[in-house]
């Protein structure tokens, strides 16, 4: 069994300073801890992806209405099997429009599908990386990269102090499978920016996603 030797103890008739530690309770404790942790262990981590229905608030007769110019909103159309169309609109006016080739990267693991539309490897503060990525031809960029470039060029809420997020509206046809919708929302949430909340600077998604109901 384990022991502790603290030296000394050579004196005549003195009690030895070597003492035995009883390891049995220690091993018991470890075993009980392992059993508890194994029983309560969670191997699949559930998470959520946020969306917003954009319901207008109740009318405020006490507040004077002002003419506010409509904000630019990113509309992402995934109705075609060959391409995505990204359109920036201010109200009903189209500001810019760009087509991105659609490449569904589908992976299946034990029946669970994951659809990816590219990866944005640039950090929000790395402007040189963004310049290099956005300098490439649009056809060679993935959907996630194109969204990041579009937001860098045309996003309205980019300041660190700005608490509002840019709005993205997703247009799908009625037959699109849910897993592809999640793939596109995941690509939209890959673009991040810095935001100051309560004196702390954190990374938040650049877009708030909603659905077009047409």
């Amino acid at each position: 069994m384990a022991g502790v030797d603290v030296g000394g103890g050579s004196g005549k008739g003195k009690r030895s300073l070597d003492s035995e530690i009883n390891m049995i309770p220690f091993i018991d404790l470890l075993m009980v801890t392992i059993a508890f942790l194994l029983i309560t262990a969670v191997w699949s981590h559930m998470a959520r992806i946020n969306a917003d229905a954009q319901v207008p608030g109740p009318p405020r007769p006490d507040v004077e209405q002002q003419d506010i110019p409509p904000e630019k909103i990113l509309h992402l159309q995934m109705t075609s099997p060959e391409k995505f169309t990204i359109v920036w609109k201010a109200g009903s006016q189209v500001v810019t429009s760009i087509d991105v080739p659609r490449k569904d990267d589908i992976k299946e693991n034990h029946g669970i599908k994951t659809v990816r539309y590219g990866v944005v490897t640039c950090k929000p503060e790395d402007q040189a990386c963004f310049n290099a990525m956005c300098g490439r031809a649009p056809e060679s960029r993935s959907l996630a990269e194109t969204i990041a470039c579009e937001w860098t060029n045309s996003g309205s809420h980019r300041a660190q102090q700005d608490k509002k997020l840019d709005q993205a509206v997703l247009h799908t046809d009625n037959d699109t499978q849910y897993v592809f919708i999640i793939g596109v929302i995941d690509a939209l949430y890959q673009t991040h920016r810095k935001a100051e909340t309560g004196g702390k600077v954190t990374e938040v998604p650049a877009f708030n996603v909603t659905f077009a109901v047409n």
């Binding site: 669970i112 599908k113 990816r116 999640i182």
Partner: peptide
């Protein structure tokens, strides 16, 4: 229910 996977997620509420 077979839930799809995603990378850019938030904690459950």
């Amino acid at each position: 229910v077979r839930i799809p996977s995603a990378e850019n997620t938030l904690d459950m509420i």
